[in-house]
Amino acid sequence: MKDHLERRMTTTDLNRMTARNVQVYYGQNHALKDVDVDILDKTVTAFIGPSGCGKSTFLRCLNRMNDTIQGASVEGQILLEGEDIYDRRVDPVQLRAKVGMVFQKPNPFPKSVYDNVAYGPRIHGLARSKAELDQIVESSLRRAALWNEVKDRLTAPGTGLSGGQQQRLCIARAVATNPEVLLMDEPCSALDPIATAQVEELIDELRANFSVVIVTHSMQQAARVSQKTAFFHLGHLVEYGDTTQIFTKPRDPRTEAYITGRIG
C-alpha cells in the first residue's frame, strides 16, 4: 500500500477552502467541535472516521446543505477563495454552483440522461445556445467517463441506468456547472466492487480540474484515492495531514486505533 501512496503524491499548495474553528449544532446537540481544515486545489481530500463522527455533517457545511435541515446552525469561518460562505450577503444558490455535491445513493432525476446533466447549466444560465448546452453535456459526460456508454441513449431516462452508471451520471451532473470544489458523500457505498473501482478511477481523473472532497467509510478507499486525509472522531477533527502520513505514521493514538481497526 505504501508504494501506491507514494506514487500519487502530487499536491499543489493552493488553498481552495479554509475552515477555521467550525462548530455545528443540531438543536441542543453540539455535533462538530473546533474543526480546522484546508481544502487544497487539484487535490483529493478524504474525510474518514466511524459512523456519526461528524464527517458528513462537515461536508455538508462546505456548500451550506445544512441550511435545508431544520434546527441546524453553523458557527466559525469557512472561506472559499477568501470569501466567507456564511456571510449574510452570500446566496447559497450561487455558492452551490461553485461547490457541487454528489450523494451517497445515486439520485438521478426522473428525467432523460441529457436533461439530468443539462439541469445545472440550465438553472444557472451557463449556456447561451442549444449547441453550447450540447457541448457542456457531452464534455461533462466525457469527464465522468460515461459518454461512450450513453451517447446513443441520451433521451432515455436516467433512472434506467445501472447503479454505477447512475452515480457517474450524478457526477457528470455535478461537474456540468463547472464547480471549483466537488463534494462527495460516500459516493461508492451503494455500488458493487466493479462500479466502485470505476468511480474511484474517475475521482483520480477529476483531480486534474477540481479539488475533490470525499467522505468515506472505507480506509482502503481513502488510501487509494486521496492525497490529504482528515480523521474525525466523536465530533472532533482528530488529525489532518498527508494521506501517507496518516496511514503510516499517525500522530494521534485515536487515529492509530482507528486505522488498525481497534475502534470504529
Binding site: E83, V90, Q94, K98
Partner: peptide
C-alpha cells in the same frame, strides 16, 4: 470559470430569487 465574487449576487441570481 471567470471567478465571480460570492458576496455580490449577479443579475441572474437576483431574478431567480
Amino acid at each position: 470559470a471567470p471567478t465571480r465574487s460570492l458576496l455580490v449576487a449577479d443579475a441572474r441570481t437576483k431574478a431567480r430569487n
